[in-house]
């Protein structure tokens, strides 16, 4: 069963000069239940915009996205009930301690008083936040803030986690906390969609990856598939190779819908995979 389905998603932003920018250009992919899917690409590739459309924060200009059976345009509230969203910026209320913050978000997700308390206590215990649960978020270290953000994303125990650059700017220890958390969530049966431009992390963690460039998927598959198709040893080199090919071989972004299969490798182009 596919927990996340994106079909030909397009997002066009109006440009200040009166023109427009296609931030996401005909993107299609599917994520199965209990999988970790990594959207990989450099800054400006369209990863964040894609995740925002999938979480109901942005309306697609065209195309369709369905999460756990709910369409993001037709029923964004139902989609939001299914997801835990973690942004690159931890986005915590500086004047609230983690316990109050988690209780607030639990209430917004519809948990009653006692359920919310139980869930918050569990998360504080599980993520070892006891030492700082009563301190204001403004005074927490980066690692403590990151744990609080993870707890916030998990407060409603959602089946899908959408993580936007979860390890951006973290030190080694905080990074480890996040990676452990992601793997543990998969073991719990959660579906995880994450974006990152740290390709080596994706290599060890993701079941499937999609390589995003200029708003479109240029390659998709499991890590071994991608490495085999490109003949490279690491995802970094594979990405550079695929991007190089896409810029020389593949047609311009506006012709994406008509893009032919890549053909020359096992890496199945996303457009043909979805059809």
């Amino acid at each position: 069963m596919h927990m996340i389905v994106a079909e030909n998603l397009v997002k066009v932003f109006p440009a200040p000069d009166g023109g427009s920018t296609r931030a996401v250009d005909g993107l299609s992919f599917r994520v199965g239940s209990g999988q970790i899917y990594g959207l990989l690409g450099p800054n400006g590739a369209g990863k964040t915009t894609t995740l925002r459309m999938l979480s109901g924060l942005m309306t697609p200009t065209s195309g369709r996205a369905v999460l756990a059976g709910h369409d993001v345009v037709d029923d964004p509230q139902a989609v939001k009930r299914m997801i835990g969203f973690l942004t690159a910026d931890t986005g915590l209320y500086q004047r609230l301690p983690p316990r109050e913050l988690l209780t607030f978000f639990a209430a917004l997700h519809g948990l009653s008083g006692s359920d919310a308390r139980r869930r918050v206590d569990h998360l504080i215990d599980w993520l070892e936040m006891g030492d700082f649960a009563e301190l204001r978020c403004g005074g927490l270290s980066t690692g403590q803030r990151q744990r609080t953000s993870i707890a916030r994303a998990l407060v409603a125990d959602p089946p899908i986690l959408i993580l936007d650059e979860p390890t951006l700017g973290l030190d080694v220890l905080s990074n480890r906390v996040i990676l452990d958390f992601i793997v543990r969530e998969r073991e719990e049966g959660k579906t995880v969609l994450l974006s990152t431009h740290y390709l080596h992390e994706a290599e060890v963690m993701c079941d499937h990856v999609g390589l995003l460039h200029n708003g479109a998927l240029v390659a998709e598959g499991t890590v071994p598939e991608l490495l085999a198709a490109t003949g490279e040893a690491h995802l970094n080199e594979a990405f550079l190779k695929v991007v190089g090919e896409s810029e020389t071989v593949l047609p311009a972004p506006e012709d994406t819908a008509e893009r032919p299969p890549a053909g020359q490798s096992d890496v199945v182009p996303p457009s043909s995979r979805d059809r």
Binding site: G56, K80, R81, F85, D89, G91, F105, L108, H109
Partner: peptide, 14 residues
């Protein structure tokens, strides 16, 4: 400005 709006808007609340 503080970056908390996105996390608030992603909650299932009108």
């Amino acid at each position: 400005e503080r970056g908390t709006l996105e996390t608030l808007m992603v909650c299932p609340v009108p």
